[in-house]
Design a protein around this nucleic acid. Sequence first.
RNA 1: GCCGAUGUAGCUCAGUGGUAGAGCAGCUGAUUCGUAAUCAGCAGGUCAGGGGUUCAAGUCCCCUCAUCGGCUCCA
Length: 634
Amino acid sequence: MINVVLKDGAMRQVPANSTGYELAELISRRLAKEAVATRINGELMDLRTILKDGDAVELVTASDPEALEVLRHSAAHLMAHAVVRLFPGTRLGIGPSIKDGFYYDFAVAEPFKPEDLPRIEEEMKRLAGEKIPLHRHEISREESLAFFASKGEDFKVELIRDLPPDETITYYDQGEFLDLCAGPHLLETGQIKVFKLLSIAGAYWRGDEKRPMLQRIYGTAFFKQSDLDAHLHRIEEAKKRDHRKLGRELDLFSMQDEAPGFPFYHPKGMILRNQLEEFWRKEHRKAGYQEIRTPIILNRVLWERSGHWDHYRENMYFTKIDELDYAVKPMNCPGSMLVYRNTMHSYKEFPLRYCELGLVHRHELSGALHGMARVRAFTQDDSHIFITPEQIEDEVGRVIALVDKFYKVFKMSYRVELSTRPEGAMGDIAVWNVAEEALENVLKHREIDYRLNPGDGAFYGPKIDFHIEDSIGRSWQCATIQLDFQMPEKFDLTYIGEDGQRHRPVVIHRVLYGAMERFIAMLIEHYAGAFPLWLAPVQAVILPITDRAREYGQELQAQLEEAGIRTELDTRNEKIGFKIREAQMQKIPYMLVIGDKEVEQGLVAVRTREGGDQGTMDPKEFFARLKAQVENKE
RNA sequence: GCCGAUGUAGCUCAGUGGUAGAGCAGCUGAUUCGUAAUCAGCAGGUCAGGGGUUCAAGUCCCCUCAUCGGCUCCA
């Protein structure tokens, strides 16, 4: 007999060589049925793993979030098993469990067709019905290489080669299907009951466009049918929030075949954008920024100097003026540098904060374009802050606080990443290390949770990125703070220090919204088109019930516009229910229904987007309420 | 850019080789109505663009363009 420690701290005696599953059986039949995996000394393992004396053992059941990962990982294997059966000669890539599901990458002679998915699902169901047990095996590096090489599984061979030398190599079998895998897995395929294959996509081997393209199948799996149904329902609901759909329905913007990736703002989209910009200007004045504007087209020589010519050329657009080469700016920084260099500067001016709503153009891959979220022309709410090296931490901290202030106004949550030196970066590695350390320090001192994103920095410096998720969980970089020692060097920027000598400033590049276009996309999805009053393109609509209320409606509209409320008057010859329905679908915050009673009494019947009929109110009182709400950005 | 899918009226979609359709939106008229769709009529199309096969192409083939999903989650 051996002793193991359970989750609640209790000691439990079990026969030697017991597995987690056997332990579960000892505790209760129900637990044995519900157990998915064991956590042994903190590590997630198979239920078949043999327990050792003194192990801390926790039985992981379906209610544990990690259980889903195990299930989905096993579901990926089940899918691969089915694919290999249906499409002999298929070679395997990788098949992990991911957020909301799983995928598996396959090298196949012919790409999968949508009709293949139901066939594969059928085969998976058949294999699940066979309740095939999964077994883990350890294998030596040589054996595993020889084995997978003999089967022509060159992707697996590459994976094994890349494993650290001391790594234990394991594979799993389920019937005739073998796969290199670290596990853990379920006991047998019959435990995979609720799953669905969702989509097919091409995916480069290891995400590298120079490597072969594999065929990826995405799917998802759950323990309960109701969970899968809920998940599919959520996906449907999320599609309704898609900014591309709402942008059209609410008439905010459009994309045209004549200008792929270059958005067209419609009047209502423009109101939204102008509100964001107005708020931005006000906050920037308060925070000590000075607004500038620099040209969109600048001479090639400038871009050679800034390093963009060498590091960013593929993403730039070019033109000729009087036989000279010019480039359309992909970034605002060089322009800002020229403004700085135009006059002498003293340390007393620092931090010197220029800000600019700068329209930039970047050639993005055609396949990467995505509504307003990834476009080829966008306005960055940019800023270039000139500081002394000593001011770095303090000023980066101020910018982080400003980012947070902005995102709180919209009640948007974000994830922070620290992106470090990319390949082919400009400048000295030692300088990079200093810059990366400085950013890391700020994050640590402010106790901000962040994820490291190695190699994803700008070519001139490391950055702190703020990511926002869209309606279907895709993550988009919005705000970013970048530290730059390179541009000041390239542009020979100086300031006069306390000692009367010339010194080199440090530059912080930063955006808060990121790009107006992308931020608007995120806002639309965040609010599902139902903007708070201060942003709503139409804030109130007056709905006369009959023509008799028309004149009163016009008076009201004049008064509302006078009070600064964006108002429409719907005088169409339609029934009130119809007008309300349309206003509701346009997600207009306030509807003012006026009929004979209101005209007579000089009142308005207020209906809100969220709360329905609110009863009648004095117009003055209503105006005050709206003004207060706009003021508070509620 | 690459892999796959899609492209028919402003929008959502039907139309599997034989005379281009529906609903909504639009326009016109009637209706003057109390909190999410009043009724009737009219108009609306180079079936993304180009080329080909065929007696005949929205439909089959090829090219181009655009859009959508994916190409980050490491056995």
